[in-house]
Design a protein around this nucleic acid. Structure first.
Length: 551
DNA sequence: AAATTAAACAACCGCATTCTG
DNA sequence: ACAGAATGCGGTTGTTTAATT
């Protein structure tokens, strides 16, 4: 497969790509052999042979010399790429194994689009290969309106983070690295994970995230292509920020109305899924009711508020495929807790997963230089002060924030309705909040945006308090919670759908379920037992997910 | 069987980072 | 310390192949 240069390669080369010097070589003035312009396009077997011969004799590196010494009319860059991606003897060829696929997903959840690092974790695989795999898979899933990361990844992350904690692994903004040499975990303290789950449940980002035990993925050695979870992983922070700034404002408005019809949904999700994708389908069953996942107890996790997982996908589609996740982050950051908020940024959640929001981290004082959010907080406080012309109390509050980053970094943010500030593209909070998410992605990078921030600056853990901000204080707490849930669930935007799940269920039942979900109870039993869902919903999503294969 | 569509793959491009003198 | 070269990386594009209509 890899060695396909010969005939078709020649045809391709002559057909489309005119020979032209490699841009860098040409522009940098350099290393043209004087034997004419450098060739581009597919490699021929003859060229491969030359290159292999050269590397065999001289070893890798010094790629520009290849052209000089071997007579290849290829730029060094092209030679390196060809060697690295196709000619290296240690390359593993053929399709990815299920184990590799699972690993890719795991790594991507952990690293984002760090293809090279992912490749380093997958012997014999190239970054390009992984990237292509991921991209095509992404496209497929996006077209189907499905999320990407399997809940297993998160469960595993949680478990591994527990182990890490036990081993004394600590995460803080200054020291955490996601080097591939580390355990393949996410280093997420459980408590954070729970927070995330709760938030996810509340926000209904991906309710199915935790529905499937890790074992179903890894035991079966599959599932890599059937992931639930968060889309739109890493993008370069500056780029994300840039795009966020340019597109953020429009995103919110567009997303709330952008849920596709479920007919479309059904078509997309079930009309073209390949067998592998079908493994996910339970939560995306053509029957809307099935979108109400049937949760499965995840050890160590609270049952998420299972809403309509699919609700995130329409969003993502509406947001345009491949949009930088930060848009979501920003959008979400700016709208979490708001009833009209569609979804949290999938990436942001993803990032959150990687970033501990634990109590213990709250004692870590973030260095000012790392805390863009702190700056934002100050800014926000000032803004509020200006706008409201309030008393000096607010001023002192702001200064307190600056003075005590630890204490203030989480609480005041929410208290000042941080999402409002985030909604303002100009507000530093929007940027810093975004940077928080970016920062939480443990990827390398030297920019300030990449510098780790104190995890407690991430506002998600304050969702619940935030709820209280906009939800009227009612006498019946349960009711309020339930109400909030309903609002927070993106599928609440689809009333007919949402209630479609709940036909025949008393209000009390619904409230109980919601509260139960909040508290970590697993409502699936009820759903199943009560037969509230059509038959499809009875599919098991447990370790033995054989039913998936039947989709 | 032909046309269309989607998936998979290969390669290029530009930017960032690292290396070297 | 600096500049230029070399290399690495990620995004994107283009082509081929397979599947579907």
């Amino acid at each position: 497969m890899i060695e396909m240069p010969s005939q078709s390669g020649n045809r391709k080369a002559s057909k489309c790509r005119k020979t032209s010097p490699c841009s860098e070589e040409a522009t940098s003035g350099g290393h043209l052999s004087g034997e004419g312009p450098l060739k581009k396009g597919p490699w021929t077997s003859a060229e491969d042979a030359i290159l292999v011969d050269y590397v065999t004799k001289h070893g890798e590196g010094n790629w520009n010399a290849v052209q000089k010494h071997s007579g290849l009319s290829r730029c060094g860059k092209s030679c390196r790429l060809r060697w690295a991606n196709h000619l290296r003897p240690d390359l593993k060829k053929g399709a990815f194994t299920p184990e590799e696929e699972a690993r890719i997903i795991e790594l991507h959840a952990k690293l984002g689009n760090k293809w090279a690092r992912m490749a380093a974790e997958l012997p014999g695989r190239t970054d390009n290969e992984i990237k292509n795999y991921w991209n095509t898979r992404i496209k497929r899933l996006q077209r189907a309106g499905l999320p990407i990361y399997p809940p297993e990844i998160r469960v595993q992350a949680m478990n591994e983070s527990q182990q890490s904690d036990e081993m004394g692994t600590s995460w803080n903004g200054e020291t955490y690295h996601s080097d591939t040499s580390q355990a393949n975990g996410f280093h997420i303290p459980e408590v954070e994970f729970k927070n995330l789950e709760l938030n996810q449940g509340l926000l209904n980002c991906s309710p199915a995230l935790l529905d499937i035990p890790t074992s179903s993925l890894f035991q079966k050695g599959m599932g890599s292509s059937h992931s639930y979870g968060f889309m739109f992983p890493a993008l370069h922070p500056p780029k994300r920020l840039r795009e966020m700034e340019s597109q953020f404002s429009g995103s919110i408005a567009s997303t709330s109305n952008s849920f596709p019809s479920f007919d479309q949904y059904e078509d997309d999700a079930f009309g073209r899924l390949d067998p592998m994708q079908s493994l996910w389908s339970p939560s995306y069953d053509g029957d809307l009711n099935v979108n109400h996942p049937s949760p499965i107890d995840i050890p160590g996790s609270h049952a998420p508020i299972n809403g309509n997982s699919s609700s995130s996908e329409p969003l993502s589609e509406a947001m345009k495929l491949e949009l930088p996740s930060l848009q979501y982050s920003a959008t979400q950051v700016g709208s979490w807790g708001a009833p009209s908020s569609p979804l949290p940024s999938l990436e942001s959640v993803d990032t959150l997963i990687q970033s501990p929001l634990s109590e213990h981290t709250q004692s870590n004082c973030p260095s000012p230089r790392n805390s863009g959010l702190l700056e934002a907080i100050v800014y926000e406080s000032k803004s509020l002060k200006d706008l409201k012309k309030n008393s000096n109390q607010q001023i002192s509050e702001a200064s307190n924030m600056a003075g005590d980053a630890v204490e203030s970094s989480s609480r005041p943010v929410c208290e000042t309705k941080w999402w409002d500030a985030c909604g303002d593209p100009i507000s530093p909070l929007s940027q810093s909040a975004a940077s928080v998410f970016v920062d939480c992605t443990p990827v390398s990078g030297g920019s300030s945006l990449d510098e780790p921030h104190s995890a407690e600056t991430i506002p998600c853990c304050k969702i619940k308090p935030d709820l209280g901000d906009w939800a009227s204080a009612g006498s019946d707490e349960k009711k309020d919670v339930s109400c909030q849930l309903e609002y927070l669930r993106p599928d609440a935007l689809l009333d007919s759908f949402w209630f479609g799940h709940r036909i025949g269920r008393s209000k009390d039942q619904l409230i109980t379920e919601d509260v139960g979900a909040l508290l970590g109870e697993d409502p699936s039993h009820e759903y199943k037992q009560e037969g509230a869902f059509p038959s499809e919903s009875n599919q098991s999503f447990g370790p033995d997910s054989s039913s998936w294969d039947n989709i």
